[in-house]
Amino acid sequence: MMRGEEAKNFRLLGHDRSAAWGGGSLVEVRRGHAYVGAVGGSSYNGREGFTVHDVSDPRNPRKVAEFLAPPGIHMHKLRIVGDDILYVNSEALPGDRGKGARTGFYIFDISRPGTIREVGFYDMPGSGPHRFGVDNERQLAFFPNDAPGWDRRVIWTMDIRDPLKPEVVSIWGLPSQRATGEGIHNDPHPAEQTCTLHGPPMIRGDRMFAAFWGGGVAIIDCSDLRNMKLVGHTRWSPPFVGSNHTAWPIGDRPYLVVTDEARAKQSYWDSQFMWIVDIRDETNPVTVSTWFPDRETYFHRAGRFGAHNILENIPSEGPWKDLVFITYFNAGLRAVDVSDPLRPKEVGHYVPAVPEGQEEIQSNDIGCDDAGRLYLIDRWGAGMHILEYTG
């Protein structure tokens, strides 16, 4: 049954259902082009790879290029490095489907967006990286990946001053992840309480923040990237379900926003939402509040109900100060004011109309361009919605 859009303080500018062949993941926008990774066969019957869209006219987006993944490869996470380079993960599909897959990340030249060109590949062990991050200002990249001597995914920090020749600076995990020999290879679909880096890790000042799925949230002294040290750590699984996804500071304030990713097979009435963590005492981070949209409205709709990711920028100043844009699967995109960290308050939302032939909306990820337009990605077939926040 089709349902119309639900909107408060958002305006739809454009829509391209072809983004990531309908089912998308991470989106990056640069110089009038959007790059959208595809979820492929992960709770969607789509292609593996990514698509490129000309969004210079946001009211008339159009696909201009695509890249199909080789057999056995999931490549749904991508990041722009500088102006002309795109990194895309190469993660083995689960089980027999991923046997023999080359894992690591692709390097593409995107100086001509309509004719993307593969210019390199960086090999990594295990099943390959998941949601990685790039800090262009510091010329660093952070990859969640397996490593000898560690159990499950840990932080690979890489120097990308020469983006065609990334170099490992350090490999770091929680003390509990230390292992002998090769450790335990990663499960591409870990259980909710598994301790494994999700990401992306990020740096503010001399501190790194990272979410470890069922393993909690870590505050790390990264003043020496080659000798990082754990400063503080907290976890809430159990009793909560787990799957800590993203940990991101609120501007320059001593608080973190943390999301727990909703799971594909079961929705939880009292778990997997957004948290605020007080880090005034870094050695003792404490959760002080939670937030979720109206459960009575969305919980019983099809698909996942729960948090996923945020726009990875909560600025210290400007019109979006203390504003969190969070994707919430069947509850669409929400805008949350966290100026009072003890009482987060919703100030806007956008749930796209359910297109013909699609059961429900599953808003998966969110990106932004230099003009402040937002790019909302659906993983169940609706593609990409280009939005303006009017609040």
Results as ranks from 00 to 15, higher is better:
residue 253 R to D: 12
residue 300 H to N: 15
residue 239 P to W: 04
residue 69 A to K: 02
residue 118 E to F: 07
residue 315 P to A: 14
residue 7 A to H: 00
residue 175 P to C: 14
residue 227 N to R: 10
residue 29 V to K: 08
residue 130 H to F: 06
residue 382 A to T: 04
residue 15 H to G: 07
residue 185 H to S: 12
residue 274 M to R: 03
residue 87 Y to D: 11
residue 339 S to W: 02
residue 306 G to S: 06
residue 170 S to R: 00
residue 81 V to D: 04
residue 97 R to W: 05
residue 359 E to P: 00
residue 87 Y to K: 07
residue 69 A to P: 01
residue 146 D to T: 06
residue 318 G to S: 06
residue 58 P to I: 15
residue 125 P to S: 15
residue 374 L to R: 02
residue 350 Y to N: 05
residue 297 T to Q: 05
residue 37 G to T: 05
residue 46 G to Y: 05
residue 24 G to N: 04
residue 318 G to P: 02
residue 73 I to F: 07
residue 293 P to T: 03
residue 370 D to V: 12
residue 60 N to Q: 13
residue 214 G to E: 09
residue 145 N to A: 11
residue 219 I to W: 02
residue 307 A to T: 01
residue 293 P to R: 04
residue 199 G to D: 11
residue 190 P to A: 14
residue 37 G to S: 06
residue 385 H to D: 15
residue 184 I to V: 11
residue 74 H to F: 12
residue 311 L to D: 04
residue 180 T to E: 12
residue 21 W to K: 03
residue 334 R to A: 10
residue 111 S to P: 02
residue 340 D to W: 09
residue 244 N to G: 09
residue 249 P to H: 14
residue 133 G to E: 11
residue 140 L to N: 07
residue 6 E to T: 08
residue 377 I to A: 08
residue 50 F to W: 13
residue 113 P to W: 14
residue 385 H to R: 13
residue 300 H to K: 14
residue 342 L to H: 14
residue 159 D to F: 11
residue 314 I to K: 12
residue 86 L to N: 04
residue 301 R to H: 10
residue 243 S to Q: 05
residue 196 T to Y: 11
residue 213 W to M: 13
residue 4 G to H: 03
residue 308 H to S: 08
residue 215 G to S: 11
residue 238 P to N: 13
residue 196 T to E: 09
residue 134 V to I: 14
residue 297 T to G: 00
residue 296 E to Y: 08
residue 370 D to T: 13
residue 14 G to S: 04
residue 337 D to E: 03
residue 131 R to H: 15
residue 60 N to A: 15
residue 168 V to E: 12
residue 191 A to P: 00
residue 177 Q to D: 07
residue 263 R to W: 07
residue 356 E to Q: 09
residue 179 A to F: 01
residue 76 H to W: 11
residue 382 A to M: 08
residue 323 L to S: 10
residue 270 D to T: 04
residue 359 E to V: 10
residue 113 P to L: 15
residue 131 R to P: 00
residue 84 D to Q: 10
residue 195 C to E: 14
residue 319 P to C: 07
residue 202 M to H: 01
residue 333 L to M: 05
residue 31 R to G: 07
residue 271 S to G: 08
residue 64 V to I: 11
residue 356 E to K: 09
residue 382 A to P: 00
residue 300 H to R: 15
residue 344 P to A: 13
residue 67 F to D: 00
residue 35 Y to M: 08
residue 193 Q to K: 13
residue 33 H to K: 10
residue 275 W to D: 09
residue 244 N to T: 01
residue 150 W to E: 08
residue 113 P to S: 13
residue 64 V to Q: 01
residue 182 E to M: 13
residue 341 P to F: 10
residue 126 G to I: 05
residue 194 T to Q: 05
residue 370 D to P: 01
residue 153 R to S: 02
residue 288 V to T: 15
residue 205 G to D: 05
residue 122 Y to C: 02
residue 148 P to M: 10
residue 147 A to D: 03
residue 18 S to G: 03
residue 329 F to P: 00
residue 267 S to I: 01
residue 374 L to I: 07
residue 265 K to I: 03
residue 251 G to C: 08
residue 142 F to D: 02
residue 74 H to P: 00
residue 207 R to P: 00
residue 136 N to M: 02
residue 163 P to V: 10
residue 222 C to N: 10
residue 353 A to G: 08
residue 292 F to A: 11
residue 65 A to W: 10
residue 150 W to H: 12
residue 98 G to L: 02
residue 147 A to G: 01
residue 241 V to D: 11
residue 133 G to N: 07
residue 370 D to C: 09
residue 287 T to F: 10
residue 144 P to R: 09
residue 233 H to Y: 15
residue 361 I to L: 06
residue 279 I to H: 05
